[in-house]
Amino acid sequence: MNRIASKNGLEPDYWAKEAYKTLRSNIQFLGDDIQVITFTSCTPNKENTNVSFKLAESFVKTGKRLLLIDADLRESALHKPQQNKEGKKGLTHYLTNQCGIGDVIIPSDVEDVDLILAGTKETDTTELLGQQKFEEMIGRLRNSYDYIFINTPPVGVYIDSAIVAGVSDGVVIVIESNAINRRFAKEAKEQLEASKCRILGVVLYKAQLGRKRFLLK
């Protein structure tokens, strides 16, 4: 869906910001019915989390309000030790009826971007995410945010992403360049298609074309 180049004479951060602006515009061009977006990868990494958060930062600059949900209940990329010490509750607490939805929404350090952390590490993640309570939660939150981004485990390893994609309006696959082969990426794509969710596109991470270094960070 998007690539970013580092060119002579300009800082890489400049091109990263421009790439996210382009990615933001591409999503907006898809229409107002694309509100809840699942972000996944093919292999275990934090790229989809990085991309979704940077994209959220780009969206708020246009006056949008966003919610970022960490639905990687196996190996959270957003979980911070200090939030554990403060007793912050997360998605697993809500899905297991330990608290209400208002107890798990916390502000991020970016204005107009809220977070729902994963919560406690779970093993029965497919059962938690597949229950009606999760789908109903997403339905309620649609009324409070312009966009909802949901980070999930790698679709090439776990089925969780396909389950979450089923209650989303679309899914973005983040692929690290030269990290996986074409066959594996195709199988991941087919698994998502089985959930009947619309695949919005692919973000190629750390891609290199010719002598130019392409880096989405």
Results as ranks from 00 to 15, higher is better:
Gln83Met: 11
Ile27Gly: 04
Thr96Gly: 03
Glu136Val: 13
Leu23Tyr: 11
Asp109Pro: 00
Leu78His: 08
Asp33Gln: 13
Arg142Phe: 08
Phe39Gly: 00
Ala19Ser: 11
Gly9Tyr: 14
Gly102Asp: 15
Ala16Glu: 05
Asp33Trp: 01
Tyr14Leu: 09
Gly63Asn: 04
Leu129Gly: 01
Leu117Val: 03
Gly63Ile: 04
Gln98Thr: 07
Met137Pro: 04
Asn84Gln: 14
Lys61Ser: 11
Thr120His: 09
Ala118Met: 04
Thr43Arg: 09
Arg74Phe: 04
Gln82Tyr: 14
Ser108Tyr: 05
Thr38Pro: 01
Thr126Pro: 01
Lys46Tyr: 14
Glu136Cys: 01
Val51Trp: 00
Val36Phe: 04
Tyr20Cys: 01
Val36Ala: 10
Cys99Phe: 11
Tyr20Ser: 05
Gly87Asp: 01
Leu10Glu: 15
Asn26Cys: 05
Gly87Asn: 04
Ser108Phe: 06
Phe59His: 05
Leu128Ala: 02
Asp114Gly: 07
Glu11Leu: 13
Trp15Gly: 12
Leu67Glu: 04
His79Glu: 11
Leu141Asn: 10
Glu122Val: 09
Asn45Ser: 15
Leu91Tyr: 04
Leu23Phe: 13
His93Arg: 01
Glu127Phe: 07
Lys80Gly: 00
Leu95Glu: 04
Ser41Cys: 07
Ser58Leu: 03
Gln82Leu: 12
Trp15Lys: 07
Asp13Val: 15
Glu127Leu: 08
